[in-house]
Design a protein around this nucleic acid. Structure first.
Ligand SMILES: [Zn+2]
Ligand SMILES: [Zn+2]
Ligand SMILES: [Zn+2]
Ligand SMILES: [Zn+2]
Lengths: 162, 162
DNA sequence: TCAAGGTTGTAATGTTATAACAAGAATTGC
DNA sequence: GCAATTCTTGTTATAACATTACAACCTTGA
């Protein structure tokens, strides 16, 4: 799987955690709570450090020393983090990535470009696409809950490195 | 997902595929061959009959009587059918669906609306979205290989049936 | 204090997908 | 016809991803 890449992707956001062990960041992402639980903090820390997508089992392995023993500990934390808008699930990768969108206003309609060579992920929003999809939904009486937009291909860096 | 029996996460819509059982369809889908192998025919038949998405294991169960014994028999056929442009993989469902687009010209950039209530899937193409995504790729030096666009929500029928 | 609700730990299990290898069928070239 | 090649198949085993179920433990707030 793709647990590589310290590439770009997840940088530039202000989550700026110091995952020592303290949990008092104060952000405002979607319905994010004032305070994360210990497990949520650890999982989010792992994803932030990685700067790219990780599978649940990779996260589990990275958190063994912090006392993690079972997949469910990771999946439960991920579920909440996604709910809070701090993490995205990448369906085509069965992996998770920390949100890197500056203000991630429309957390349910972000798009992701995934490099199949280096595994890096770029998160972006495109108003025209969102508008178009909502338009289709409206025209077809479809009550849209969430959209998945994932591009697969080769990033600029990897193409240059031929 | 539901259990590993015969449940078909789908139904609800009637694609009225003509692929009843006969296998001399003369598709022009992508790089489809003149003739499918026995296993490919059986798998495609199962998907066509279903008229909606099926998981590989559900297909396996449906083809026990035809001699199928192992997942790989299904996965291998699916791999080819996707390659031929006759089947799509739905990433957010880990399932597969027969292509229902009239001419499915741009097989790699179709969009799917998946009803979370009844499991029905509508396949559609939207030139504006495709253009927009290709535009982003061009602007960012990303060599686009394939896009995944999946909408989750509730279809018109299910909303009416409240 | 006590109940209610959320979080955690753990084991067991369920679900989706691939690796590895052997054997069979179709295709090609001679 | 008869290899050589290539594609397809059958089968076993295993890897990778995800959830159910249950008991224990906190926290919050009557
Ligand atoms: Zn985001
Ligand atoms: Zn790359
Ligand atoms: Zn199609
Ligand atoms: Zn529906």
């Amino acid at each position: 799987m793709a647990e590589h890449s310290h590439d770009h992707a997840a940088s530039g956001h202000d989550h700026a955690h110091d995952h020592g062990h303290d949990h008092d960041h104060t952000h405002d992402h979607g319905s994010a709570p004032a305070k994360l639980t210990r497990n949520q903090t650890l999982v989010f820390g792992a994803l932030s450090r990685a700067g790219g997508p990780l599978t649940a089992y990779t996260i589990l392995d990275q958190l063994r020393d912090d006392g993690f023993r079972a997949p469910l500990q990771v999946y439960r934390a991920l579920e909440k983090l996604v709910e809070f808008g701090m993490v995205h699930r990448l369906e085509s990768l069965n992996a998770f990535v920390a949100c890197s969108h500056p203000q991630c206003v429309d957390h349910e309609t972000m798009a992701f470009a995934i490099c199949e060579s280096c595994g890096s992920v770029s998160e972006f929003a495109d108003a025209a696409i969102t508008r178009q999809l909502k338009g289709w939904a409206g025209d077809n009486g479809f009550a849209l809950a969430k959209t998945t937009i994932e591009l697969r291909g080769t990033c600029r860096t990897c193409q240059a490195a031929v």
